[in-house]
Write a protein that binds this DNA or RNA. Structure first.
Length: 217
DNA sequence: TTGTGTTTTACGACCTCC
DNA sequence: GGAGGTCGTAAAACACAA
C-alpha cells in the first residue's frame, strides 16, 4: 500500500491522541486501499479539544456503523451518557458519535418524508382515477336522461295528436289519467313519479325508447 | 482513467429547552 | 448560558458510466 504523507501524519497523530479519531489509521483486516482520486489537502479539522489539526475525514468502519445503527434503532435521541458510552465502545470521539446521530436523524427524516410523499401521491392518483370514472358515468347518465326526455316529448306529441283526432281517446285519457303507466300505479299527486323510469327489476335500466315500446306497440 | 453524481462525515449558524 | 437539536453546506469517499 502506498502511504501518503497525510496517512503517515495521521498515523502519528493517532498515536498521540489514541482516543480521538482512532479510525484514522485503517485497522488490520479491514484495509481498504484508497483507490479514488487524490483529495485536495484541505482537511484542517478541529479536534475534540478545539485544537486545529490536519485531520482528514475518514469513513467509520462497518462495525462502528452497525453498532451506531443498532443504537439508533433503539432510540433516535442521544443522551450524553449513551453518547460517551458508545464513543468509548467504538473508539470514537463523542463529538463523532453526536455528529453521526445528527446526520442519521436527517437521513431518517428524509426517508420518512419521501415515504409520506409517495403515499400521498398514490392516494392522489387513485382519487384522480376515481374522479374520471365518475365524470364519465355522469356523462353517460346525462345522455340517458336526454334520450328519455326526448322520448317523453315525442309521446306527448303523439298523445296530443291522438286526442285532437279522436274524441274517444281524449275521453279515455281523461278518465284513466294514467294512460301509459298502467300497472305502475303513478298516483295523481305524482308521489310515484320517482319510479317512473325504473319499472323493471333493479339495476336493469331500460332507456326511454325501449320502455315506451313496451306500451305503445 | 476520468468525469460526474451520490453518500457520508463534519462543521457553523441558529434555535429551543432547562 | 450550556447542551443538544435542526438545517444548510463543504468536502472526502465512493460508485459507475463513458
Amino acid at each position: 500500500m502506498n502511504h501518503t504523507v497525510d496517512d503517515q501524519n495521521m498515523a502519528f497523530i493517532s498515536q498521540l491522541y489514541p482516543d480521538v479519531y482512532t479510525q484514522i489509521v485503517p485497522q488490520q483486516g479491514e484495509v481498504k486501499p484508497p483507490k479514488r482520486r487524490k483529495k485536495k489537502n484541505k482537511g484542517a479539522v478541529t479536534a475534540g479539544d478545539g485544537s486545529s489539526c490536519l485531520f482528514r475525514k475518514r469513513k467509520l468502519t462497518d462495525e462502528q456503523v452497525n453498532m451506531l445503527e443498532m443504537s439508533f434503532g433503539d432510540e433516535h435521541k442521544l443522551e450524553s451518557e449513551r453518547k460517551d458510552r458508545l464513543a468509548a465502545e467504538l473508539g470514537l470521539d463523542p463529538r463523532q458519535v453526536a455528529v453521526w446521530f445528527q446526520n442519521r436523524r436527517a437521513r431518517w427524516k428524509n426517508k420518512r418524508l419521501e415515504e409520506e410523499y409517495n403515499k400521498l401521491k398514490n392516494s392522489h392518483d387513485n382519487v384522480v382515477v376515481d374522479k374520471r370514472r365518475l365524470e364519465s358515468e355522469v356523462l353517460q347518465l346525462k345522455e340517458q336522461l336526454y334520450d328519455a326526455e326526448r322520448e317523453i316529448q315525442r309521446l306527448a306529441e303523439r298523445v296530443e295528436r291522438g286526442s285532437s283526432n279522436s274524441p274517444i281517446s281524449s275521453v279515455s285519457v281523461e278518465v284513466n289519467e294514467t294512460p301509459f303507466f298502467g300497472d305502475y300505479n303513478v298516483g295523481k299527486d305524482g308521489d310515484d313519479y320517482d319510479n317512473l323510469f325504473y319499472p323493471v327489476p333493479e339495476n336493469s335500466y331500460i332507456d326511454g325508447a325501449e320502455w315506451m315500446n313496451l306500451y305503445i306497440s
